[in-house]
Each structure stands twice: as C-alpha cells, then as structure tokens.
Amino acid sequence: NKFNKEMRNAYWEIALLPNLNNQQKRAFIRSLYDDPSQSANLLAEAKKLNDAQA
C-alpha cells in the first residue's frame, strides 16, 4: 500500500528531526495516523518547523 510506505517513511523522518521536541514529534505522528494520505504534507510542515527552530 502506497500510503503505508509513505507514512512509514514520514514517521521515521519526523522522529529523527533534531530540532523538534517530543511533543511536536508526537503531534505530527498522531496526524500521520489520523490521515496517512497527508504524509508528504505533514513531513514538509515538520521539516519547515525543524528548520525554523534550528
């Protein structure tokens, strides 16, 4: 399933972002599970926040 693969990839990328705190990571990951079709958008948002907090 395409969404499962995208979701799994996004999950690990988000989990490993160095500048997000655990609460932020959990919120993004919860959103991934709520709507796997938004994986790419959620990952992009997480990366933006990660960069902003660098």
Rank of each mutant, 00 (worst) to 15 (best):
N1D: 15
N1T: 08
N1W: 01
N1E: 12
N1L: 06
K2T: 07
K2I: 13
K2D: 15
K2N: 13
K2M: 08
K2L: 14
K2H: 10
F3T: 07
F3C: 05
F3R: 01
F3K: 04
F3M: 06
N4P: 07
N4M: 05
N4G: 06
N4Q: 05
N4A: 04
N4I: 05
N4C: 03
N4E: 13
K5E: 15
K5V: 05
K5Y: 04
K5I: 07
K5H: 07
K5F: 03
E6I: 04
E6C: 03
E6V: 05
E6Q: 07
E6S: 03
M7K: 02
M7V: 11
M7W: 11
R8M: 14
R8T: 11
R8W: 08
R8S: 11
R8K: 05
N9E: 11
N9Q: 15
N9T: 14
A10R: 05
A10M: 08
A10I: 14
A10Y: 10
A10Q: 03
A10V: 10
A10F: 14
A10T: 12
Y11Q: 14
Y11I: 15
Y11A: 12
Y11L: 15
Y11C: 05
Y11W: 04
Y11G: 06
W12R: 15
W12L: 12
W12A: 13
W12S: 10
W12Q: 15
W12E: 09
E13M: 13
E13L: 13
E13G: 08
E13C: 05
E13I: 13
E13P: 01
E13H: 13
E13R: 10
I14L: 05
I14D: 00
I14K: 00
I14Q: 00
I14P: 00
I14M: 05
I14F: 03
I14Y: 00
A15L: 12
A15T: 15
A15S: 14
A15V: 11
A15I: 15
A15D: 04
A15Q: 15
A15F: 15
L16C: 04
L16M: 15
L16A: 13
L16F: 12
L16P: 01
L16K: 15
L16I: 09
L16S: 14
L16Y: 15
L16G: 15
L17I: 01
L17A: 06
P18E: 09
P18N: 05
P18Y: 05
P18W: 04
P18C: 02
P18Q: 11
P18I: 05
N19K: 08
N19W: 05
N19A: 13
N19I: 02
N19E: 04
N19D: 05
N19P: 00
L20G: 00
L20K: 00
L20A: 00
L20H: 00
L20N: 00
N21E: 11
N21Y: 10
N21K: 06
N21T: 13
N21V: 04
N21A: 07
N22W: 03
N22G: 12
N22M: 03
N22P: 09
N22K: 13
N22R: 12
N22E: 15
Q23G: 13
Q23P: 08
Q23C: 03
Q23A: 13
Q23M: 08
Q23K: 07
Q23W: 14
Q23S: 13
Q23R: 08
Q23Y: 13
Q24H: 03
Q24N: 03
Q24A: 07
Q24I: 05
Q24G: 01
Q24V: 06
K25D: 00
K25A: 02
K25Q: 02
K25W: 02
K25C: 01
K25R: 10
K25S: 01
K25F: 05
K25Y: 04
R26N: 13
R26T: 06
R26Y: 08
R26A: 06
R26P: 01
R26H: 06
A27Y: 12
A27T: 09
A27G: 07
A27E: 14
A27F: 13
A27Q: 09
A27L: 04
A27C: 02
F28H: 01
F28C: 01
F28L: 10
F28W: 04
F28G: 00
I29W: 11
I29R: 04
I29F: 13
I29H: 11
I29Y: 13
I29T: 06
I29P: 00
R30S: 13
R30W: 05
R30E: 06
R30F: 10
R30V: 09
R30A: 08
S31I: 07
S31E: 14
S31Y: 10
S31Q: 12
S31V: 08
S31N: 11
L32Q: 01
L32F: 03
L32N: 00
L32V: 06
L32M: 07
Y33T: 05
Y33R: 04
D34A: 12
D34N: 09
D34G: 12
D34M: 14
D35N: 11
D35S: 10
D35A: 05
D35Q: 10
D35K: 13
P36E: 03
P36I: 06
P36D: 03
S37I: 07
S37E: 05
S37G: 11
S37H: 06
S37K: 12
Q38W: 08
Q38G: 06
Q38D: 12
Q38H: 12
Q38L: 06
Q38A: 10
Q38K: 12
Q38S: 07
Q38F: 05
Q38Y: 08
S39Q: 08
S39E: 02
S39K: 14
S39N: 07
S39C: 02
S39I: 13
S39A: 13
S39D: 02
A40V: 11
A40M: 14
A40T: 09
A40Y: 08
A40I: 10
N41D: 08
N41Q: 15
N41I: 09
N41R: 08
L42T: 10
L42P: 01
L42K: 05
L42V: 14
L43I: 14
L43H: 02
L43C: 02
L43V: 15
A44G: 13
A44K: 15
A44V: 14
A44E: 09
A44M: 11
A44T: 12
E45F: 06
E45D: 14
E45S: 10
E45V: 10
E45W: 10
E45Q: 11
E45C: 04
A46R: 00
A46P: 00
A46F: 01
A46N: 00
A46S: 06
A46T: 01
A46W: 01
A46G: 02
A46V: 02
A46D: 00
K47T: 05
K47Y: 11
K47G: 05
K47R: 13
K47D: 02
K47C: 02
K47H: 11
K48V: 07
K48L: 10
K48D: 07
K48W: 11
K48F: 09
K48G: 08
K48M: 12
L49R: 06
L49G: 01
L49D: 03
L49E: 04
L49Y: 06
L49T: 14
L49A: 06
L49V: 10
N50F: 01
N50H: 02
N50Y: 01
N50R: 01
N50A: 03
N50I: 01
N50E: 02
N50S: 12
N50T: 01
D51A: 14
D51Q: 13
D51Y: 11
D51K: 12
D51E: 14
D51W: 12
A52H: 12
A52K: 10
A52I: 12
A52T: 10
A52E: 10
Q53F: 10
Q53I: 12
Q53V: 11
Q53W: 09
Q53C: 02
Q53R: 02
Q53S: 14
Q53N: 09
A54P: 10
A54F: 11
A54G: 08
A54V: 15
A54C: 03
A54Y: 11
A54D: 13
A54Q: 15
A54H: 13
A54M: 13
